[in-house]
Design a protein around this nucleic acid. Sequence first.
DNA 1: GTAATGATCTCT
DNA 2: GAGATCATTACC
Length: 185
Amino acid sequence: MRSTPLTYNTTRAFYARPTVEVARDLLGTILRHGAAAARIVEVEAYLGESDTAAHSARGPTPRTQVLFGPPGHAYVYLIYGMHYCLNIAAEREGKAGCVLIRAVEPIAGVGLPTNGPGKLTRALGITLEHYGADLTGGSLIVCAPARRTTFDIGVSPRIRIKKAIDLPLRFFIQGNRYVSGSVPK
DNA sequence: GTAATGATCTCT
DNA sequence: GAGATCATTACC
């Protein structure tokens, strides 16, 4: 049994920045849900404007309203009728933009694979009940490591979307074994 | 009301 | 490479 790293909660200001910056800075942070903890190793940025691949591209809808609300809140949705995906709203209130958590590295209390968007939500027990949850305080939170670790950040186009596939908005920790093995077609 | 779509995963 | 499986969205 190893001790988990000392951590401090992320702040609202952390998320109230350009989506791409938030996405990059989320790499290496700790996602906690109850007793489960995992390190974020792969993310994708979805921009609110001029990003046809984003759910927020065509304006607010009942589902995407949280993306236009205050940053630092969870956007969870069911995809393909089977899997939940966890996103974190970025940008200031009134402007859409979010970061999809694609893969995490288990730290404690995780007994299932986490190398994929649908897998990590299942492994951490994240469901629609977390829709709109405040990730700066609550049962589901994101913490930053007390000791900053350094790593190389890899960049690539986003995976398995059908629009705007040319944009390099996927970020991951270079060489980390928990980065999803999915390869764009 | 009806139909198309999809930021996935698992098995073959 | 294909199927599972359903909420959301767009359109009639």
